[in-house]
């Protein structure tokens, strides 16, 4: 399936990846060929085949409802680019 630059820009926007027009053009060709490869799947007869999300047929284990974590804010926020009063800072969000 051939992609247009705006398809790439749309995906880039959804993924919040900044791409300039040159980047987008470059990716159009790569992505088109990757999708052409993926399109080979259409040839496989999958009628009545259930999708497989996990390789093992296992089921979810449940965790006891216990508080096991302690406050590690200071440790975690050492990796944070901008914090104040214990809050992570981001450019003003307009509601």
């Amino acid at each position: 399936m051939a992609l247009e630059p705006q398809d790439v820009q749309r995906a880039a926007h959804l993924a919040r990846l900044g791409l300039d027009d040159n980047d987008a053009d470059r990716y159009v060709d790569d992505l088109t060929r990757i999708l052409e490869m993926a399109d080979q799947l259409q040839a496989v007869d999958t009628d009545g085949v259930a999708p497989l999300a996990h390789p093992l047929d296992a089921t979810q284990r449940l965790r006891a409802d216990e508080v096991t974590e302690t406050d590690q804010r200071e440790r975690f926020q050492r990796n944070a680019p901008a914090v104040e009063n214990g809050l992570y800072l981001v450019p003003r969000v307009v509601e």
Partner: peptide, 11 residues
Amino acid sequence: VKRRILIGTHT
């Protein structure tokens, strides 16, 4: 990485 993020987002 960008290429795969874009492919995954698109599909």
